[in-house]
Design a protein around this nucleic acid. Structure first.
Length: 86
DNA sequence: CAGATGACGATCA
DNA sequence: CTGATCGCCATCT
């Protein structure tokens, strides 16, 4: 059972249009907890649902952050296909 | 229930 | 500018 916060995070990430990226801070802020950036990453990391474009969620530093292993892909590869590149 | 963990963010040195 | 430390929140063990 997911808490309201995690549910909100999924919803926000799922709303991210193709070719667009959001930072963990933005997602946390929209979810209602501007300081929960860590919690956001944690929730997503343990729920890697394919219906949620978690690879579009990056750090505020402009770095991709973690993400690893899902289908052996990396965020960079997926984002590059979206039209986003470093 | 309490402690440790983590796909982070911001500030300090 | 780069590296390290503290702070914050939900989830896991």
């Amino acid at each position: 059972m997911k808490s309201n916060f995690s549910q909100k995070v999924y919803e926000v990430v799922r709303k991210i249009p193709r070719g667009k990226t959001l930072t963990y801070k933005q997602v946390a802020r929209i979810a209602g907890k501007p300081k929960a950036s860590r919690a956001v990453g944690n929730i997503i990391s343990k729920n890697t649902n394919k219906n949620v474009p978690c690879h579009r969620v990056i750090r505020s530093d402009g770095k991709l952050g973690g993400y690893n292993g899902l289908r052996g892909k990396s965020k960079m590869q997926l984002l590059a296909k979206e039209g986003i590149k470093l």
